[in-house]
Design a protein around this nucleic acid. Structure first.
Lengths: 406, 406
DNA sequence: CAGATTTGAGCGGGAGGAACACAAACCCTG
DNA sequence: CAGGGTTTGTGTTCCTCCCGCTCAAATCTG
């Protein structure tokens, strides 16, 4: 019931609009900002003045393109004025990154995670240790906005409780709390499902830039989905939304890791692909590599396995196109590799299993960010507090006079 | 790019918050509004004063409940100060309603629509004629906010083009434009899918009041879905979202009206239920009535048919619970009748085909609004413009002095 | 009936953007 | 190279809108 608005709300919203624009579309001139926001030059001046005074932005000489009129200074965000720390817990790797305003990656590190190395506390330790291996070292604590964590599992967004994470064998693990305690910083730790973060990253920096209704499907051993509705992530009542890998797709189907059977991921996940290609279901990343190597070399079994997997993908995808009416479907992980080989198969089934109207509007593309999408998405989520309220934490550090010029 | 906010934005937002609250939660005292919005007494006084001055609201003596302190006058919306005209095109009926502020139904009429009576222009004529059969007659044009239309079909929300409506045999029918031309009013005509409107009605006035993440599933001959995310309808890129009846559920399955095969509605729609109960698939409403009559009388075949349909419902419902993480599933149409007989079957399959975390949070209930839900939802959508900007169309009719009191 | 409590009434103040006038910086033309 | 046209920054004034405060009104309690 915080419905009431006041003057400060307006200022916050306007500052936020400016910072959001700069963060998503890059540096722009003040007059561009006037055009984009509809605010007056006076207002933009005051607002940008506040941002520069607080150190979040800088104004540089205009990039004059030979147009008449007084040149407008270019406003850019200061990447290291506010940064996100993000972590990703992958199937066989751990990653950490520092991402600054504007989406500038200030540092990334990856490390292998041996299978079976699942113990929560040691993973938390490993993540924190990764920070010291960053080229730029640990960021100063007072510029860190928040910590974002991507994990392949069902995550309660409120507090970062990992309800289940099959790849890690986790059930009811309070990852958010553990990491927050270990870091001992005064910033929030935000844990999200990796597909939910992947779609955000692809929307901000990847294949879905500028498109507001996106379905992202990430396939590896398991299959996860992330949905963007009107530019905002669909999280559901508690953050569990997007578990499309466990949609009942075939009957009776084989047992799934989740305890059910016939789940979609049992027929489109890595295991199904491997089996079709003549490998054991648990042949892992090496097996997958061999399938794609075979396909690249023209091996008929590998190609047929990819096509069959594409068909299974296309069928259920049709159902989701009917249900969500996305403008774009982004295929990530295994599926982005699969796409070139199975494009026709996917579309053949999609056409048969979707209604003409939503189908006519949708495009299917492979992801462009690769394996780092969840890591980058976690950073985007972690930066959100500054974007939403630029003056809240940083601008008012010293009660800066707004117009310190003249 | 209309990101810029100004002072007037605040006033509009605050007026809107007040009107929305009164519309959804009914009459309240000014002090209640203070508590709910977080605004000050002064602000509420001025805002409510503007509403009463423009005739949208009235202030009556307080309903004193024996609490100490000066009594606070009760603010209520004036139902007939702004009304919506809504229409519904059902399988075998046409309906029209006038709904005022606060959701007060000022008049409803229903008429039979004989099967085969599908010609667009005659249906449009019939709808408009219905208005004259309303108890209160046609509303004065200047209090009509908008016209809302519910139709069982795939509707492009932008302009009300009905892409397909299988029950009516329509393809590419510009229903919105035709109705607007026939009415010749200067208000917008808003056409939406009936399930999308049904979920809105159940949220505002029915089984889902107070719950912001809702999946509504409406089953008749076809099956449609409406999703509410964070209190807002999920419409997708063009308004086509929610066509869950055509989710590929079985393979190969029987052909569906949509041209595909194995669609969910082929196993949970009225046809499937009828067939299981020993009737022809096209036995219609009478057939359905006989199935339920049989079940009520304890007929084993009828009961088994209902249970089997419930199982099919529960299986795919599990997938949607995983995908959307709703807090509530509302079953409408046929499914609300089916629910008492098939509750256990639905839950048995739902438990098997959904993940523990989202399942633990979800409840399944039958709809409470019955067949009028789409009609009421259409009215709610059509009232939205006044709720969003109470001063925009009505308040500033004569440039009313805000504080005409004293 | 007196005190406590809650809320309305009314006034002044501050925050924040709009509107306007003017100056600055660039382009182009002759 | 000088002057006009154009675009945009600068700075002041004005308007809108909510907050905070004080006082008065209306109710309950004892």
């Amino acid at each position: 019931m915080d419905l009431g608005q006041r003057s400060e709300t307006v200022r916050r919203a306007n500052l936020s609009a400016i910072v959001h624009t700069l963060h998503e579309d890059g540096p722009q001139s003040r007059s561009d900002l006037v055009a984009r926001t509809g605010l007056t030059r006076s207002a933009i001046r005051a607002l940008v003045g506040e941002l520069t005074a607080s150190g979040l932005a800088t104004e540089d000489r205009a990039v004059h393109l030979g147009r008449p009129g007084r040149p407008s200074p270019e406003v850019s965000l200061v990447a290291d004025a506010a940064v996100a720390v993000s972590f990703s817990i992958g199937v066989d790797s751990l990653s950490a990154a520092i991402v600054g305003l504007g989406g500038v990656v200030l540092g990334v590190v990856h490390a292998d995670r041996p299978r079976g190395h699942d113990f929560v506390r040691s993973i938390v330790d490993d993540l924190v240790t990764l920070l010291d291996r960053l080229p730029a070292g640990r960021p100063a604590e007072d510029v860190v906005v928040a910590v974002g964590v991507a994990v392949a599992g069902v995550v309660r967004s409120r507090d970062g409780l990992v309800e289940t994470a099959p790849n890690l064998g986790w059930t009811g693990v309070p990852l958010g709390a553990l990491l927050a305690a270990r870091l001992d910083w005064s910033v929030p730790v935000i844990v999200r499902n990796e597909a939910d973060l992947g779609v955000l990253a692809e929307h901000r920096r990847g294949a879905a830039v500028g498109i507001d209704d996106v379905l992202y499907i990430h396939g590896e051993v398991g299959v996860g989905g992330g949905l963007l509705v009107d530019g905002h992530p669909l999280s559901g009542a508690a953050g569990y939304a997007g578990e499309i890998g466990h949609f009942p797709a075939v009957r009776p189907g084989i047992p799934c890791r989740c305890g059910s059977s016939g789940c979609w991921e049992t027929v489109v996940g890595a295991g199904a692909l491997l089996e079709r290609a003549g490998f054991p279901r648990d042949a892992g990343a090496q097996g997958i590599e061999r399938v794609f190597a075979g396909a690249a070399a023209g091996d008929a079994t590998a190609l047929a396995a990819l096509e069959a997997t594409g068909r299974e993908l296309g069928i259920v995808l049709g159902g989701f196109v009917n249900s969500f009416n996305p403008r774009l479907v982004v295929l990530g992980g295994l599926f982005s590799q699969l796409y070139p080989y199975a494009q026709d198969a996917i579309w053949a089934e999609l056409e048969h299993h979707s209604l003409p109207a939503p189908r006519a509007l949708v495009r299917v593309v492979p992801a462009t960010l690769g394996g780092d999408a969840p890591l980058l998405g976690a950073a985007e989520v972690a930066l959100e507090p500054v974007l939403a309220d630029p003056a809240g934490r940083f601008g008012s550090r010293v009660g800066v006079p707004v117009l310190a010029s003249a």
